[in-house]
């Protein structure tokens, strides 16, 4: 009994212990909160402050211009075209990726032994950095030496060959294709998990009731994936609104701004034109757009959820 009683011999041992317990949450949270304050919260606020300045970022000649930058942003067609491109990216991401991902999930669900190895191989693009993919596909799309045009030529569709990234009509689409190529497997795995959670007893019961595989899929499994769809849409829209790397590497926003996104536009303003003030306005504007769309989306998907 020695150990326990010596410890308690201290009598009011409770005092120190209890106050430490009171402080514990603060101690455990301190590192995270400190880092988030310095590298997320402060920059966020600071960005809004910088958005009120006219400054090239170098000298001490920062000039307070009030809401001038914001007024400029409101009528800056380049920004709104960029935002529109973000929305196109979001919409096409959802419209192209979701159906293909569901089909692939169903295919792998039925592929038996091969499904594991296929899943592993499909997933490979997700390990690549956007820079690596950007550079790879820049050459893939190359007018003269790119394998895509060569491939079209080879199958007799040579007339379809294009300057994919150099043509204002195709640049954004070409990049969207790469985004889809990379992310479809991600959503596929998401849907596979959704399908796997479909209770086997239900489809067995339905089969006993005479339902065909097709009926079970359309009437039961697909509705079962509703929640997964919701998650997938939210993820892919938010991702699309913040997109930067791949576009920056592949087209830099060009040609003629045809593939410009909010983030690349901001980057150009700050680090190419050295308009730190206006660049920060663009960044803050982008922040507002993203938060607005994200909260509308989440509100909507939550309401949807309660209806189900």
């Amino acid at each position: 009994m020695t150990d326990i009683s010596t410890r308690s011999a201290g009598g009011g041992a409770g005092g120190a212990g209890l106050s430490l317990r009171k402080l514990a949450p603060a101690i455990f949270l301190a590192p995270a909160i400190l880092l988030l304050a310095v590298y997320l919260l402060y920059p966020l606020v600071e960005s809004f402050r910088l958005s009120l300045l006219d400054w090239n970022g170098l000298g001490a000649d920062a000039r307070f211009v009030g809401l001038d930058n914001w007024k400029k942003l409101a009528t800056d067609t380049l920004f709104w075209e960029a935002a529109w491109n973000n929305i196109l990216l979001a919409v096409f991401s959802v419209v192209i990726q979701m159906p293909i991902a569901v089909v692939l999930a169903v295919v792998l669900d039925n592929a038996g032994k091969g499904s594991r190895i296929l899943k592993i191989l499909y997933f490979l693009p997700l390990l690549m950095s956007s820079v690596a993919l950007g550079v790879l596909f820049k050459y893939f799309y190359d007018v003269n030496f790119g394998p895509l045009n060569a491939l079209l030529d080879y199958v007799g569709l040579g007339f379809l060959a294009q300057d994919w990234l150099g043509d204002t009509r195709f640049a954004l689409g070409a990049v969207i294709a790469v985004v889809c190529w990379q992310y479809i497997p991600f959503y596929m795995v998401l849907f596979m998990a959704g399908l796997a959670s479909f209770p086997a007893e239900i489809s067995e019961a339905a089969k006993l009731d005479g339902a065909s595989e097709a009926t079970i899929f359309w009437k039961m499994k697909l509705p079962h994936l509703k929640g997964t769809f919701r998650t997938a849409v939210v993820l892919s829209v938010i991702g699309a609104l913040r997109y930067f790397d791949l576009i920056y590497v592949m087209t830099g926003g060009g040609p003629e701004g045809s593939s410009e996104l909010m983030a690349t536009y901001m980057y150009r303003n700050v680090f190419s034109s050295f308009q730190l003030g206006y660049g920060s306005t663009v960044a803050s504007g982008m922040f507002i757009v993203v938060i607005l769309i994200a909260s509308v989306l989440m509100r909507f998907s939550k309401r949807y959820e309660t209806e189900v």
């Binding site: 988030l36 590298y39 997320l40 920059p43 966020l44 960005s47 970022g57 920060s280 960044a283 938060i291």
Partner: peptide, 20 residues
Amino acid sequence: LIVAGMIVPIHITLVPIYLM
């Protein structure tokens, strides 16, 4: 609040962090 940080586009932090 911390979880909401997931949707913040990091680009807004870029300039301030660069200056910092």
